[in-house]
Computed example of a mutant assay.
Amino acid sequence: MRSGKSAAGFTLLEVLVSLVVLALIILGLSQGLRFGVLAFQHQAATIDRAANLDAVDRTLRGLIEQIDPGNRHDAPEIAGNARSVEFTSELPEGAAAALGSREAEIRILVDHDHRLILRWAPYRHAKPAGPPTPPVDTVLLPQVDHITISYWAHAGPPHWLATWNSPEVPALIRISLTFQHGTGIDWPDIVAAPQRSRP
């Protein structure tokens, strides 16, 4: 017959089972917490990436919409192919204080490091006496495999052109971004229309 003192205690087997159950509970909680942290980090990265892409989208649309259309004496300086495009446009208002003018010579391209580059230099209406101002490269997006640029003409058969060598400004410019394999990024084409009227 067991005494009252021994009946009130726990056996070694009961203690071991309790420890195993407690360990399983702690393991489950830690895995759940880890999953929650990873999910939060993934969601935050997705939101940041979408916000960055949206900012690039708005920047490129704004530059295209402000393409200098030239005038009756000077044709617009636009040179475009499927991988890059050059034109004169207006930078955002914040750049005016640093440059003294918002007018800039713009080139959009993807460099050898798979970065979407905005290459720009201040536009000078008169030929400078000294050496030209070296262009500045601004990285818009990393991990871009390539871009495909196409141009829609005002006249002629309705289709997209792979190059632009007309004295007129295209009716539309479309930029398709193709990201590197494994990034999981897919973004709709950026299509914008130059809206500045020729003086």
Rank of each mutant, 00 (worst) to 15 (best):
Q43T: 14
N81Q: 02
E103A: 15
R58L: 10
R58D: 15
D54T: 14
Q43S: 15
I106V: 07
G28A: 05
E86Y: 05
L33G: 14
R58I: 09
A104T: 01
S101N: 05
T46P: 09
A39T: 15
Q31G: 06
R83K: 09
I26P: 09
V56T: 12
S101C: 06
A50N: 15
R83C: 04
F40R: 11
N81L: 01
A50H: 12
E105K: 12
R72Y: 10
L19H: 11
R72P: 05
N71Y: 02
G94Y: 13
A51G: 14
A95I: 00
A44C: 13
Q66V: 00
V21K: 00
D68I: 01
L29M: 14
R58Y: 06
P92D: 14
I64W: 02
D54V: 07
D74Q: 10
A44N: 14
R49V: 06
S30Q: 15
H73F: 04
N81K: 06
Q43Y: 07
S89R: 00
L91W: 01
S18H: 06
Q66T: 12
L29R: 14
L53Q: 09
E65I: 01
A75R: 11
S89P: 07
A97F: 08
V56W: 08
L33R: 04
E93V: 09
L60F: 10
A96D: 08
A79S: 09
L22E: 02
A39L: 13
L91H: 02
L63K: 04
I26D: 11
E77K: 07
G32C: 02
V20D: 03
E103S: 12
N71A: 04
V37N: 07
V21M: 05
P92H: 08
A50W: 10
Q31D: 03
L22Y: 00
L60W: 02
R58E: 10
E90K: 04
D48F: 12
N71W: 02
D68G: 06
L19A: 14
I26C: 11
Q66D: 11
A23C: 11
L91V: 00
D68N: 11
A95F: 08
F40K: 05
E86I: 04
T59C: 07
F87D: 00
A51H: 14
F87S: 01
V21D: 02
A104D: 03
E86R: 10
I78K: 08
G62F: 09
L60A: 11
N52S: 15
A75G: 07
S84W: 07
A82N: 11
Q31F: 05
G80K: 04
E86V: 04
A96G: 01
